[in-house]
Simulated assay, not measured.
Amino acid sequence: MAEEKRKFRVEVCFSPDEFDLYKQEYSVVVAIDVLRATTAICTAFEHGAEKVIPVSTVAEALVYKNKGYMAGAERNGKIVEGFEFGNSPFSYMGEAIKGKTLVLTTTNGTRAINIAAATHKVIIGALVNLDAVIAYLIDQPDDVLLLASGWQGKFNLEDSICAGAITEALLESGKYMSDEDSTIASLFLFKEARVNYFGFLKASSHRRRLRNLNLNEDIKYCLTPNQTRVIPVYKDGALVKMEL
């Protein structure tokens, strides 16, 4: 009788502050910050950026800016004073970024990326590249951790819903299994939200935060799935477009 193949694990971590509880068990980390960092990063590559350097602090971004790099900085949903752009995906469109190396620091997303990239292979996930990420993960042979960026170390809805969407597809492929309660919770959140992300997240804290900053168009863009097949991957200190 043929030996049954081992199933890979897929689990969800709700916050970078909890990453140490998971990191020993997984080979691939999918960093998720739907509103808005990972969406902006995917958009930049879709529009021709060569690299994106994610940095965790404004001071680091300023060093790059002073060296002549195109640098964006966001804190609490707002562009940091002295920078031309933050993490709106609309800032990463057009001819100006083609072939460029960009530098970005955000409240949550770039911190999550750098925490995971210190020890793991990291790819970038969002709703805008959802199906591409799912297809890649189904074909690769490792255990996967879906790392939600959250909000200042705390749980948020939109990243967990995106993680739930990925989880559902991986489990349905038959190649993955999961048993963490965080993964089960994300899966049920996704099942409730899938018909109307925009409506489901109407009362979410970060959507309200962005709406109060008149960023509704950003929200609509970030919550619209499958606008790109790009998958950014962290390599040698920067994110680059994965060669599929």
Score class of each variant (00 low, 15 high):
A193P: 05
G48W: 05
R36Q: 03
G68R: 05
K23P: 01
F190D: 04
N87F: 04
G237W: 06
S205F: 05
L210Y: 05
D236T: 12
E74C: 06
F8E: 04
L35Q: 01
K98L: 07
I97W: 07
S205E: 14
G77H: 08
L130S: 07
N214G: 05
F188K: 14
I134R: 07
S88D: 08
L146G: 09
A96C: 11
T57Y: 06
K23L: 02
G164V: 06
L215N: 01
V28I: 14
K51F: 12
W151L: 11
I166D: 10
T183R: 04
R209F: 07
L223N: 05
E217Y: 01
V10H: 09
F83E: 06
K121M: 10
A59N: 12
E74Y: 03
A31G: 02
G164Q: 02
N108W: 11
L170N: 03
Y197C: 07
I97E: 09
A132F: 01
V230C: 04
V240C: 13
I219K: 02
A49W: 02
V144W: 08
E25I: 02
E168M: 14
T57F: 07
E4G: 08
L127V: 03
V63L: 09
N76Y: 09
K154I: 06
A135S: 12
S91Y: 12
T183K: 06
E46I: 00
D17P: 01
S178E: 01
V55I: 10
E217G: 00
V128C: 10
E74P: 06
V195D: 15
C222Q: 08
A31P: 00
G72C: 01
A169C: 03
H47Q: 05
M242N: 14
V34T: 04
L210H: 06
A148H: 11
R194E: 15
N226F: 04
S205K: 11
D20I: 09
V122K: 02
E84W: 02
L187M: 09
A40Q: 09
Y136F: 13
T106M: 08
L130H: 07
S88V: 06
L145I: 02
V122A: 08
E192Y: 11
I97V: 07
D139G: 14
R9W: 12
H206T: 15
L189G: 06
T107A: 07
E3Q: 13
G48F: 00
K51E: 13
P225V: 04
L215P: 00
R194G: 04
S91G: 13
S205T: 10
L171N: 05
E84T: 08
I79V: 15
N226I: 04
E81A: 13
D142H: 15
A59Q: 12
Y69P: 09
I138E: 15
E95T: 12
I231L: 08
Y234Q: 00
K220N: 10
S56Q: 03
V63K: 13
V230K: 02
D17R: 12
A49Y: 01
I124R: 03
V10C: 09
K100E: 14
Y64A: 05
G72Y: 04
R9N: 13
G86W: 04
S205R: 13
G68D: 01
T224E: 05
E18L: 15
L35M: 10
C162P: 09
M177Y: 12
S149E: 12
K67I: 00
L147R: 12
I138N: 08
K98H: 12
S91K: 06
K175R: 13
P16N: 11
T101N: 09
R211W: 00
L244H: 11
A40P: 02
A238L: 04
G150A: 09
G77C: 11
K154T: 14
